[in-house]
Design a protein around this nucleic acid. Sequence first.
DNA 1: AAGGGAGGCAACCGCGTAGTA
DNA 2: CTACTACGCGGTTGCCTCCCT
Length: 203
Amino acid sequence: METMKKKGRGKATITSQKEEEGTVRKGPWTMEEDFILFNYILNHGEGLWNSVAKASGLKRTGKSCRLRWLNYLRPDVRRGNITAEEQLLIIQLHAKLGNRWSKIAKHLPGRTDNEIKNFWRTKIQRHMKVPPKNMMHQHCSGNSQSSGMTTTDQGSSGKAIDMAESFSPATTTFNVVEQSNENYWNVEDLWPVHLLNGDHHVI
DNA sequence: AAGGGAGGCAACCGCGTAGTA
DNA sequence: CTACTACGCGGTTGCCTCCCT
């Protein structure tokens, strides 16, 4: 079956032959797999992802199932069309929380950490990487306390911090990105409406 | 019209943490 | 207390699409 695709895909390390032998399947999810996972969770609920993976018959890891559900299949996931308000909120929260994407996501109902993370990297970080020249000067001249922004934890486990974080949203000339939602689809487009509205409650 | 590069995004990987035996 | 398991999170990768030349 064709892979559901709208835009890019993950690592395509599909093992077309080995998956027959019960090995773990990787790479993009197919509609069939989505359907199986979706129905399984409708009937059994979230959680116990390893069990989900096994019991549903999917040759996926529990991790993979969880990720797919959270980022894609969940009925309340909103995709695309990040509003100006949301963008502002993301910037403010990022200034406060740093790269705590899941925490930021909690303030944005329907948004996933993955989506916010991608949004930050692709839209916002890019703007920050090309700061105005005078800003660049400011930045390079050692402004460790740059405008009081704390980026609190600096990446929990000492992982690399993007230079972008040193730029204060307040001073960065950041253009709010306008996005059209025309090119996005919701899970409702994929699944029959009656499935979503039918004999289950929103999970 | 074709080719190449950049952008966008789904999905994997590795690590940290919480829960349980 | 220790070991093990499952889950959650952040970083990274790689494919597809779009856009520019």
